[in-house]
Nucleic acid binder design. Structure first.
Length: 268
DNA sequence: ATGGTCGCCGAGCGA
């Protein structure tokens, strides 16, 4: 059994005590982190390695930044979205939002932090998000075509609520970039080409959330959104044993505004 | 309630 979790930590330095406590308590085999908000050199690798994890980081100053933690060997590490360009600031790979790696030679994991996209009136925000999603769809298709028998997990903070069941107030959020049809259409493109939304494969219940804003008592009122997702290619979906959201970290002191989401695959 | 709350870093942006 291999357990893979995704967790937007909203600064790995500010969240280090919470992250270390959660790693000790849950000991997932692989953890995909988003919004580490630091350069590679500032990533607290020693503390995490002490818990038995190997670390692959794609950092950036102040904003964004992603990382993969693994108790199993990592190889084939690619700290960018393959196929995307990044020389200009408006190009999909200009920001540190993607890293992928092969775990123990048997699972490819892709860790992403998709652009938020608000406000939808600004092309440098919403247009950037949609172009970034187009590049992700391209990459997802290439992975299906080139290694269909290798389990692949594409997970992270998608900044997309796939349906109104994933939003506490669908009418209030209808014109937000997280809920717009253009964002949802691109998310569905991933499902239509053969990827499985792991949470939706184990429950059809509405109101499963992974993010609660810091403002206005959103956590206390359960005013949440489901925007952190684990998508499985058919080879991985065949091995799906369970999936869920771990709400406990969101209730701790100094919590991130996101909480971990996980999947278990029956692989040796 | 024309704000609210965090984290970046030391003003205002991003979420």
């Amino acid at each position: 059994m291999v357990r893979i979790a995704t967790f937007n930590v909203n600064s790995v330095k500010a969240r280090l005590p919470n992250l270390l406590a959660w790693l000790k308590a849950e000991a997932p085999d692989v953890v995909l982190l988003q919004e580490i908000k630091c350069v590679d050199e500032a990533f607290p690798a020693l503390e995490i390695e002490d818990l038995g994890y190997q670390v692959a980081v794609h950092g950036q100053k102040t904003y964004n930044g992603v990382a993969i933690l693994s108790r199993l060997p990592l190889e084939d590490i690619t700290p960018r979205l393959p196929g995307a360009t990044g020389s200009e600031d408006d190009q999909p790979d200009a920001q540190a939002r993607y890293i992928e790696a092969l775990v123990d030679g048997k699972i490819r994991v892709c860790c992403l932090y998709l652009p938020n996209g608000n406000p939808i009136s600004e092309d440098r925000k919403f247009g950037y998000k949609l172009r970034w999603m187009d590049k992700l769809v391209d990459r997802a298709r290439i992975l299906l075509e080139t290694e269909p028998d290798l389990p692949v997990v594409i997970a992270g903070d998608y900044n997309v609520c796939p349906t109104d069941d994933d939003v506490y107030d669908p009418k209030g959020w209808a014109d937000d970039a997280l809920c717009r049809p253009e964002s949802r259409q691109r998310f569905r493109a991933l499902l239509h080409m053969g990827y499985t939304d792991a949470i939706r494969a184990v429950t059809k219940a509405p109101g499963v959330y992974t993010f609660w804003d810091y403002q206005a008592g959103a956590w206390q009122k359960d005013h949440g959104l489901r925007i952190d997702h684990l998508l499985l290619n058919p080879a991985a979906a065949d091995k799906l044993a369970n999936a869920g959201v771990d709400r406990k970290p969101r209730g701790e002191q100094k919590a991130s505004d996101h909480t971990p989401t996980w999947v278990e695959l029956t692989l040796d």
